[in-house]
Design a protein around this nucleic acid. Structure first.
Lengths: 333, 333
DNA sequence: TTGTAAGCGTTATCAA
DNA sequence: TTGATAACGCTTACAA
């Protein structure tokens, strides 16, 4: 069933059917009803490929995620989706598994006009490549940023966030603080290391390279990593990790070894996903405003969709240090 | 830049450019190279909307998920994706949040020919509606099934899985076994209840309605639900839950109340997601072969894409009871 | 081997 | 208010 057949059945022209479809007012009530009736009887649905070809836009955006296993991404997705649907866009997702080839393959969806724009959550592409694409096609980053003139982004200040978390650990009595960071050398990871070092420096604590570890964003890897850290001659008394899953692995290690998180070893995770609250003891975590990041990212994308040459911007939202059972309270003054 | 402009620059016809694009062999090497060169210089990418309109297929499939917060879905997604990419399909995802309207909106993607088929993970639509759609468009279910002639599905035997889990709890000494089930009255939920009751019946244990609870698939709700269960005059000594997140909430409750999971109260979750292993104590769980379910579901979809009138089938894969710390070992014979 | 032209299903322009 | 028709970008007979 296509528009032509509907037109024949309704004894009118395709143009008129199209007008009814698009709620054009220049259609007499009687023909409108006649067409409407045929549409209902036949269950006709316009072929949007045809429409998209004609209008040259798809009404869809794409979100590229590295993985779905981090629940923090769910919140981002919801933020994007919500804002997008208000503007009449459908939101589609793909998973890149952090494989650049996959990312490029999905980028093709915008290059080949199948979606109107792309939001990428934690790209593995290099800055130059992203910047080139963002110069020609609507493409923004969310939760991360890359240096480049053309790329709009929404994220938090990872330097400050890490700085604040580590400072808190120091203020509550820790001098041997370890950093368990992600292994991808992305900007946000580098920044967290910078923030970590700033906090140490401010407290006059020398950096110990053996306290800075990198491992996968999974509880299995962080557990293994924790084995190494705690096997050091002077094991850390506090560990700051780059995700809640990592923190969970650390807490699991501690429990298994009859150590109490928040007493023997303090732990702060990142993202404040449901994992941090689900665990017992509940895990302290740096909360990223995922939902808002998603909303803002869509708004930025929309600007680019409407005018690819609009000026790029970065929007930095506030994080929040969410304190739970795996950290000590601040000492009274 | 479109195919026509490329043709002009390459001093040939659009047909020839199209042939080069589609690796048609009936093109002389010299013109092929000339066209190839222009394509590279100009960075031309064919507009796939145009191609799709002409070929009447999109090379994309859609996967509808209720939520991303259950990590088990990740495995399913990977299975689908992997198999789909082997057949040259891109896999797109959407989240329905269990809202039927959302589901229908996304169903439109297949009705309007924007994707070639849909796999739905845990639909909220009723059987009739699904069956009608599946009669006309490639549409299969994964991890759930609905009665209906037209719908192919891949899932496990939830009756048997629940039966086996509960039987295990009984065999290891429990006579007061509770069921914490999901609240959506989907087939797989009903079946788990049936399996639960079968196991009780077989052991001659009467069903107690106050031991059968329904709550959201979240650790917060299951925690609250657990408060009620454990507040009963005869609280259960074992709890079988419909997801690992629920089980986590239960275990959290136990720990908070100085009860030991696997000694005072046994717990078995469902899905065997990373949560069950991440927790300490590690949570026993019914493992669904998510990756394989995804692969099979795609194969079923492909059959429908190739012939919408091909006979529908259900494929039932084996689950596995994964025993960890929250259950007791079987007594020696 | 190459080109011409029809056609995929729609929207938009123009004339009636 | 309507309808004929060109156009969107591509593929594919068919002809040359």
């Amino acid at each position: 069933m296509n528009i032509k057949e509907v037109a024949i059945l309704a004894e009118t022209s395709v143009a008129t059917v199209s007008r009814v479809l698009n709620e054009d007012t220049h259609v007499s009530e009687s023909t409108r009803q006649r067409v409407q009736e045929i549409i209902e009887i036949t269950g006709y649905k316009p072929n949007l490929i045809g429409r998209n070809l004609r209008t040259l836009h798809s009404g869809k955006i794409l979100v590229m995620m590295p993985t779905t296993s981090n629940p923090y991404y769910s919140r981002v997705m919801q933020g994007i989706e919500h804002r997008a649907s208000l503007s009449g866009y459908d939101t589609l997702f793909v998973i890149t598994h952090r494989v650049p080839e996959n990312e490029r393959r999905y980028l093709d969806l915008v290059l080949t006009k199948q979606v109107d724009g792309i939001i990428v959550l934690a790209s593995t592409l290099d800055g130059q490549e992203m910047n080139d694409i963002a110069g020609e096609y609507p493409f923004v980053q969310c939760g991360a940023y890359t240096i480049g003139d053309n790329i709009s982004y929404a994220c938090i200040d990872n330097v400050r966030a890490a700085y604040e978390a580590v400072s808190y650990l120091i203020k509550t009595g820790n001098r041997r603080v370890a950093l368990m960071n992600g292994p991808y050398a992305r900007t946000y990871e580098l920044e967290r290391e910078i923030g970590y070092k700033q906090a140490l420096a401010e407290a006059g604590i020398p950096v110990r390279e053996d306290y800075i570890r990198s491992c996968e964003y999974s509880h299995l890897d962080s557990y293994d990593c924790c084995v190494e850290l705690m096997g050091l001659k002077d094991p850390p008394t506090a560990i700051f990790t780059s995700s809640d899953q990592m923190a969970a692995g650390v807490v699991k290690y501690l429990m298994k070894h009859q150590l109490v998180a928040g007493r023997d070893v303090d732990v702060i995770g990142f993202d404040n996903s449901f994992i941090s609250d689900m665990f017992y003891p509940a895990i302290s975590s740096v909360s990223q405003p995922g939902y808002e990041l998603g909303k803002v990212a869509f708004d930025l994308l929309l600007e680019k969709i409407n005018d690819i040459h609009s000026i790029s911007k970065g929007i930095v939202l506030n994080y929040k240090l969410e304190l739970r059972d795996t950290t000590k309270p601040l000492p009274e003054k």
